[in-house]
Design a protein around this nucleic acid. Sequence first.
RNA 1: GGACGGGUUCCCGAGUGGCCAAAGGGAGCAGACUGUAAAUCUGCCAGCUCCGCUUUCGGUGGUUCGAAUCCACCCCCGUCCA
Length: 308
Amino acid sequence: MVQTNNINKQKLLILSGATAVGKSSLAIQIAKQINGEIISADSMQVYRHLNIGTGKVTQEEMSGVEHYLIDIVNPDFNYSVANFVSDAEAAINLISAKGKIPIITGGTGLYINALLNGFNLSRTPGSETIREKLNDRILNEGSQKLHEELKNIDPESAEKISVNDAKRIVRALEIYYLTGQTKSEVSQKNPESNYDYLFFVLDDERAALYERINNRVDKMMQQGLEAEVRSLYQYKNCNSMQAIGYKEMVKHIDSEISLEKAVDQIKQGSRNYAKRQITYLKWMQAEKEWVTCNDISKVMPKINIFLG
RNA sequence: GGACGGGUUCCCGAGUGGCCAAAGGGAGCAGACUGUAAAUCUGCCAGCUCCGCUUUCGGUGGUUCGAAUCCACCCCCGUCCA
């Protein structure tokens, strides 16, 4: 472990992993033992009313442990990494002011990465209007055309972004047209993290994980996922509704697919998502401890050593 | 019993004499990733001693220089007529 210059840094516990591995409940258990509070790093649990499908912990399950960044915006809000980083920093300060330990838990790797590695998002703002225009151009001119454009402006980024990756092409161009600087110039990360953290990744055998996911989706259906999505139907075009479990259910409500098919797609989508989460976690630069989720006994000793 | 339609690589599904190890999609695996990230995108995907070879397209036999594609019989499946 690299523990240089960590003496004065804020201590953080990170707990991540694929969907349905059991992060939330483990986090609560840990919080109780070390007098900690939980900050959710989940791009969908920030939305109010998206409860069943996002696998939010209930008030009861929280059993008194304070949770942050859950239910903080309405479903029509477009939450982003930038919001997360500032919200999470604020929560960290709040928790630490109470003399407690912040535990970051969630499956949105990008969010955790941005927080830990000090992405400087303030230098790369966003602009809905510019983005919209760019998106229109992609539709009309094709992504290849805009990729060419990016190549002239920021060859370094163009090199890394696929010609087909419309989203990233748009974003890179957006940064340039908004700030006059290229994405590659502006998006440097801090050389060193602001935090002293202990990072656990919960994992399991792939087959077991996939099975757990399938079961969890069945459970969500029993809990009334369909009704929940119906009650949120008005938001069907919002970002929040692109969450797995919601977009498929909307298709069913719109009579595009049968209920059975929707459920299958939710399971399939969740499995694919889990795969991507794991890939991101593997890729992400940070010291990590991979823990098999049914063998978490060795987690506490390490935490105790870490906290001193 | 009769009339058609069909059985293709893990699944769906193109292919109807050579350009076919066989389109396309899905799944799976691996990867990328700095303001939509539960999103978006990329690669691999019969096997091998891998610029060539070997085994695949329900089964068996045949026609042909050559078949997943044509013929015969057989085995399943679906629809229809009795």
